[in-house]
């Protein structure tokens, strides 16, 4: 590893044409992509929400369905950004050599990685807004506080895009991503209060949970879903942004090393 790999990111507005490129590809496949964005979270939300919800008492003053809706927004935005940063990012970096083509222009690797993160976060925003519309249509909540969930989705997207890019920078092939999903993403879904309150976990696991970014996302989303301002919102936002910025920098260093070979 060379010292210039650790240089601070040199960002420029030249990232924007790359983001536009990703958007143009997405537009061509939009129909199937949107169906995926709606179908997956809806199946969980309605399946578990109605099925399990009918067996469960009220959760903190709301129905289980509303409780679960807040978790669903967070985990589906996490999934969108992760899939984009891992599978699609890897395909652009390696299989299709899209990055290589772009780096022969005045655009730099730093711009490319920034564009990847912002694009994956854009997909999260889209996915979050889709669930939000469903929540509104189902009549689960009509509070204007719901609108705050859109910037939250974007933030969760930035956080998980950045973390995912670290994995992409290290991945020898697509198979590698299974480890990340099995060992990081799935446990996070279970430990971070998506399906049940974190307080149900043994104390040790509660401590682990408090360090995980998804927990902080859920802690913001849940009060908003019930129309309340989330307590300690600044702390939770700081944790999410901390993960995003650190992840971005670490992934950039790793990409610089990988692509200088």
């Amino acid at each position: 590893m060379n010292s210039h790999h650790f240089a601070p990111p040199r960002l420029s507005l030249r990232f924007f044409p790359i983001w536009q490129r990703h958007l143009l590809v997405w537009k061509k496949l939009a129909a199937s992509s949107i169906i995926g964005h709606i179908a997956d979270p809806m199946i969980y939300l309605l399946g578990l929400g109605y099925g399990l919800g009918s067996l469960l008492p009220q959760m903190g003053g709301t129905s289980y369905l509303v409780f679960l809706a807040a978790g669903t927004i967070c985990y589906s935005t996490m999934n969108s950004a992760s899939f984009e940063a891992l599978y699609s990012g890897f395909s652009r970096m390696k299989e299709q050599r899209t990055w290589e083509a772009i780096m022969n222009t005045p655009v730099t690797l730093d711009d490319i990685v920034l564009a990847e993160m912002l694009w994956a976060a854009s997909k999260s925003l889209l996915s979050g807004v889709t669930v939000l519309v469903a929540v509104w249509l189902l009549g689960l909540s009509h509070s204007p506080m719901l609108l705050w969930l859109a910037p939250l989705a974007l933030m969760v997207g930035l956080c998980f895009a950045a973390m995912g890019l670290i994995v992409t920078a290290l991945a020898p092939s697509y198979d590698f991503f299974m480890y990340y999903f099995t060992l990081v993403i799935t446990p996070m879904m279970l430990l971070c209060g998506v399906f049940f309150p974190v307080e149900q976990l043994p104390p040790l696991w509660q401590n682990v949970s408090s360090a995980l970014p998804l927990t902080h996302a859920v802690n913001i989303a849940r009060p908003l879903m019930s129309g309340n301002a989330p307590p300690h919102a600044l702390l939770h936002v700081a944790v999410l942004l901390g993960y995003a910025l650190t992840g971005f920098y670490v992934s950039l260093v790793l990409f610089r090393r990988r692509l200088s070979q």
């Binding site: 790359i18 490129r21 590809v25 061509k28 050599r97």
Partner: peptide, 21 residues
């Protein structure tokens, strides 16, 4: 070759030109 497989011939040129501002 590292052309964009999702795009047409003309789109490849358009998208690439944008990288030059």
């Amino acid at each position: 070759d590292n052309l964009d497989p999702d795009f047409t011939v003309a789109e490849n040129l358009l998208v690439y030109g944008r990288y030059f501002g």
